[in-house]
Design a binder for these strands. Structure first.
Lengths: 231, 231
DNA sequence: GCAATGGATTGATATAAGTCAAACATAAAT
DNA sequence: ATTTATGTTTGACTTATATCAATCCATTGC
């Protein structure tokens, strides 16, 4: 769907990347003049893995999933993304390709900013460069955690961790709408959808969670945390 | 063991980080004046995961293993490192802690440079900042690959990939001294040491490799590559 | 030369987790 | 109201991989 920019200017936007906050008025205006908004319906692809990474993309509303397309059609869901996060991935400075795909889960409004602009500001504004480095670092850091999580924990631990991730980092509530299918939860925790179902059943029997297919309520967070840490 | 600096100056050092190449004479001198060399015997720890990340570390000679200490004493070997690589990890700009450990495999000579210096140059020299971003990105990129590799491939594929990694990226030969134990190969491919032994046996039976415990010769690289890609 | 050590190997067994197939919901579309 | 599509659940079965225990082998130190 074609759309004019909805947000009038970066200056008044409260959903932008934290690292844009420190820009000078001129720099911010440069960004503002060179940005393009677009909107996406659920399940539409915002970033396609392997395509040229010409733009930095920021959601201004809605929720999307970040995932890698792996071997023989299998996906690995990396994380969920909402506003204020830079989407682009490390491929930008390696081979100028996106190294993951991003697809809308809810309706999504997104802002596209050319990497030429971003790089220009990196070169001119050391604080911005450092902010960029911090952003990259934090995402890399999470990958280090994730790799341990996925390789060393058993299914119960991985699933518990995912449920806590939704509660603490995405929906900010212990009682949330589950916007992902069992299949997708499986792609996130590296398990078969059937295993997701079975283990959620177990957690429910032990009164640790309440799980309607499309909503989750955490009843015993302590226990869930123990399971997540024990692996 | 206490030691004076062996390398007289960064200017004449051919084993330094590529990103130091673009520095001005003054900047390089700043680095040179604030660096400290140290040497390590095999199995000695160069970086300890969790400790404060005050220094960037560069090997000038020898080989080291980079690994994470995971759950219940289990390690995950990330990669091998030799000269010209920055060792520090993304934790530096997240929580000021090293997020992995590094241990010497052979005798190692290393150069320590305070991150205060590095950060100072990042702020003053945009090209250096961009080089730093590229380095971070490339390492993050490899983690994205690794996570797919470890979660989606079966043991044969993971082991084949490791054997190719040694040949192509570490020893630059299809016939190399295996400096890692079966245990360590297992930590790298996320498998039990017994499984490493068994599958190396299979590869040997199929005449794809020749494996004395302490040396490996790749006999059929094509096939090994197919196994590594098929998963 | 001989114990002591650390690693490599092997075989038997246990377990975690994936696959397959079918049945069951639920919601949207006609 | 009935069909269609999409997601969920369940049970039976298979497979990949870890674990355990024993043995073997090579190196090092005395």
């Amino acid at each position: 769907m074609y759309s004019e920019n909805i947000i009038s200017s970066c200056e008044v936007c409260d959903r932008c990347w934290a690292n844009f906050k420190g820009l000078s008025v001129e720099e911010l205006e440069l960004v503002n003049k060179n940005r393009f908004e677009a909107s996406f319906n659920p399940s539409e692809i915002i970033i396609k893995q392997g395509s040229p990474s010409s733009n930095a993309i920021f959601l201004t509303s809605g929720l999307a999933k970040v995932y890698m397309e792996g071997y023989s059609g299998r996906n690995l869901l990396i994380n969920l993304a909402e506003h204020s996060t830079l989407l682009a991935g490390p491929g930008v400075h390696v081979n100028s390709r996106y190294c993951y795909s991003v697809a809308a889960i809810t309706h999504v409004q997104a802002c596209f900013i050319s990497f030429d602009i971003i790089r220009k500001i990196i070169a001119e504004n050391p604080a911005f460069a450092l902010g960029f480095i911090e952003d990259l670092s934090e995402k890399a850091f999470r990958m280090y955690q994730k790799i341990l999580n996925l390789t060393q924990k058993k299914m119960h631990g991985r699933l518990a961790e995912a449920l806590l991730y939704f509660a603490d980092e995405v929906f900010h509530s212990d009682d949330y709408e589950m916007l992902l299918t069992r299949q997708e939860i499986g792609e996130m925790t590296n398990m078969a959808k059937e295993s997701v179902v079975r283990i959620m059943g177990e957690l429910e029997n032990e009164k640790i969670i309440r799980a309607m297919p499309r909503s989750v309520k955490i009843l015993n967070k302590e226990k869930l945390r123990v399971i997540s840490e024990k692996g």
